[in-house]
Design a binder for these strands. Structure first.
Lengths: 242, 242
DNA sequence: CGCCTAGTTGAGGTAAGTCAATTCACGTGG
DNA sequence: CCACGTGAATTGACTTACCTCAACTAGGCG
């Protein structure tokens, strides 16, 4: 029970799930698997019949270009799905790599579709989660397209904080963050060197620190204003179902 | 019948729709409406009960930043949905603006959900279309994050061409394109001035021309190689249903 | 002990931005 | 019919945000 908490907590922000619905969610948990950091879980172009629910650890989804560069599309934290879209589409257009060692539970396509038929509210909750993921990608695009490096990084770290707060692993004070500057650079469309400089800048402006795997917000409101961070695309504060 | 062709044509690339299913699709066409270029259809933060199917003309979805800049997330061409996500989410996180005068048919949320229950294959086809939209946003993010201006613009024009070809309005020779350099700049995260320079560059490299509202591919294969354009994220060549 | 990865900082280069001027097509009203 | 205004495209001159290359430090681990 404890183990599924992140996902249930997250979905509960959208829909008030009944005990029966939570049971169906529990029933999905087929096979527990672990993967080590750095070795791809899913590779671009691969077709797959399963998705995963991330139980612990962090992962990232990314696309590689022909010249070897890569763009990280999103990071996944506990409670997030991995490869949900590939189940619907039967083919994956991106790769997924564990950032840390991770634990996942495998969800078979057939079980997922059956659960949808069985409990429509659960299906709706999961489509909501998928839509929220898409909204995050859109916001990510806005940042990379139109924000400068400092605003972009600040916005990114604020979004992560808000997501982690939703599953009880972060607050306005800060959170533990296993990302390296290289990973953030690949996500933000910057060089690792520049990420480093910008972190210094944010530190010297007394907005936040990021040291030893921990993000500390020194001036949360100031940071929010600086990054023009409006979390409404994450909250879905007024869900259809209550 | 003729009028819905773009959408039916597009969905047929994913699922072979039966006559009955096409009829349901036809039944969705409630109210025909027109909007003039430049006046927002949906505004950021608005909540809405309807989505639209674009019948003719072009539109774009975008987000605005506090400082007045904007990032265009995607353009919509005939056969595309407008605001599909907002129906599921009950609130829109972005704005939609007609690029040209457009004709749409309004689809009410209730009708859409009923059609889904009635014909699951149609629902699947529409979820596919939504997933394809998401895959396009992801590819867009990759371009803005990691491609230089010339590759980005070339990739963008190739993608548009492939999308238009799917609805019979484009080919490897070229297509009519009502976009201004300002619109493309807002989509690609560039300045309009630089878009202009890069268009010249592509013209001087004998790859394409864009003049008087028409894109002409001079060297399609060369352009594809130059932009590292792999359309697999659009095609879904191997759909689940046949 | 030495290698490897992550982080840090400096120097110099470049892709793309900003500002500005010009042209052209167009519509509109006197 | 012409004067005028407006929006789009084009080009030049100059600026800048971020990149690349390179050197150095510090921690972790075989």
């Amino acid at each position: 029970m404890i183990a599924t908490l992140p996902l249930v907590r997250k979905l509960s922000a959208f829909v008030a799930l009944s005990g029966a619905e939570i049971d169906v969610l529990e029933g999905l948990r087929k096979r527990r698997r672990t993967f080590v950091a750095g070795r791809d879980l899913v590779h671009q172009g691969q077709s797959d019949q399963a998705a995963y629910i991330l139980m612990s650890g962090w992962a990232c989804s990314y696309k590689e270009l022909a010249d070897g560069q890569r763009q990280i599309v999103d990071f996944q934290v506990p409670g997030d799905f991995l490869g949900l879209r590939s189940v619907l589409l039967h083919i994956s257009d991106h790769s997924i790599e564990p950032v840390t060692d991770i634990e996942v539970t495998e969800v078979l396509k057939a079980d997922l579709l059956e659960a949808f038929a069985q409990t429509p509210r659960l299906a709706l909750a999961i489509f909501w989660a998928a839509s929220r993921d898409e909204a995050m990608v859109v916001e990510h695009l806005v940042g990379v397209g139109r924000r400068n490096a400092a605003e972009r990084l600040a916005h990114f770290l604020l979004e992560l904080g808000a997501r982690l707060a939703l599953i009880g692993q972060g607050s306005k004070a800060g959170y533990d963050c296993p990302l390296t500057q290289y990973l953030m650079a690949d996500a933000l469309g910057l060089s690792a060197v520049h990420v480093n400089r910008v972190l210094r800048l944010l530190r010297e402006a007394d907005l936040l620190t990021f040291r030893d795997g921990h993000v500390t917000f020194i001036n949360y409101d100031g940071l929010t204003a600086f990054a023009d961070f409006d979390p409404s695309y994450l909250d879905h504060a007024d869900p259809l179902l209550t």
